[in-house]
C-alpha cells in the first residue's frame, strides 16, 4: 500500500511538478538576467553622446512658459544643466550669459538653462547674481536630466539644427572662447 503510493507520488513529482517548475525557474532566471543586462547597459552608456539624436524635452520656465524642443527645429540649442548649490556651475555662468548676448541677435541659437534638483528661491538668487537672461526652468520630475542621463552638474549639451547632439560638455566651460568654438562651426554650415 505504502509502496504504491510512494511510486505515484514520485512519478507525479518527476513528470509534472519539476517540469513546470523547471520552465518557471529558467524563465525567471532569463527575465532577471535581461533586466540586469538592460540596467547595466544603461549605466554603461553614460550620457547621451555626440552624433546621437537628442532626446525630446519640454522645459517649463520659471515664468511659466513652455518650451518644446520640437518647436526649436532649425535652431542650435545650447542646453545647460546647473544648480544653485553647484560651485563649479558658477565658473561658467557669466561666460554662458555673455555667449547668449552675443548670439541672441542672430536668432539662430537658443540657450536654455535646466535647473537640476534645486529650490526656486535660491535659483532666483543665482540667476540674478549672474544676470542670466536666457530662458531657465526647473527640471520638473528630473525628467530632462534622466533622459539625457546626466551624471552631475554642470553639463552642457549642444544640439544642431537637425536635432542631433554635436557636443557634450561634462563639467564647466572654462572660457567664452570654448563656447563659441563649439557653436560657430554649426552656424557656418
Amino acid at each position: 500500500m505504502t509502496e504504491v503510493e510512494e511510486k505515484t507520488v514520485t512519478e507525479e513529482e518527476t513528470n509534472t511538478g519539476p517540469k513546470w517548475g523547471r520552465m518557471l525557474v529558467w524563465g525567471g532566471l532569463l527575465v532577471l538576467l535581461t533586466i540586469v543586462a538592460l540596467g547595466l547597459k544603461r549605466t554603461q552608456e553614460g550620457p547621451v553622446g555626440p552624433g546621437q539624436e537628442a532626446p525630446a524635452f519640454v522645459l517649463t520656465t520659471f515664468d511659466g512658459q513652455e518650451i518644446d524642443s520640437a518647436d526649436l527645429a532649425g535652431k542650435v540649442i545650447v542646453l545647460n544643466f546647473w544648480a544653485s548649490w553647484c560651485k563649479p556651475c558658477e565658473q561658467e555662468a557669466a561666460d554662458l550669459e555673455t555667449a547668449w548676448q552675443y548670439y541672441q541677435e542672430g536668432g539662430d541659437v537658443v540657450f536654455l538653462g535646466v535647473d537640476y534638483v534645486d529650490t526656486e528661491p535660491e535659483a532666483m538668487v543665482y540667476m540674478n547674481k549672474f544676470n542670466i537672461s536666457y530662458p531657465n526652468g526647473a527640471d520638473l520630475g528630473t525628467r530632462i536630466s534622466q533622459s539625457f542621463r546626466i551624471r552631475g552638474v554642470p553639463e552642457t549639451y549642444i544640439i544642431d539644427q537637425d536635432g542631433v547632439l554635436t557636443h557634450t560638455q561634462i563639467g564647466p566651460f572654462t572660457s567664452l572662447l570654448q563656447i563659441t568654438a563649439v557653436i560657430d562651426p554649426l552656424l557656418g554650415q
Binding site: G141, T142, Q146
Partner: peptide, 14 residues
C-alpha cells in the same frame, strides 16, 4: 533592490 531597475527600464523614472 531589483524593483528600481525595473521601474527605470519601463517608465524611465527612478
Amino acid at each position: 533592490v531589483i524593483f528600481p531597475l525595473i521601474s527605470e527600464l519601463f517608465t524611465g523614472q527612478k
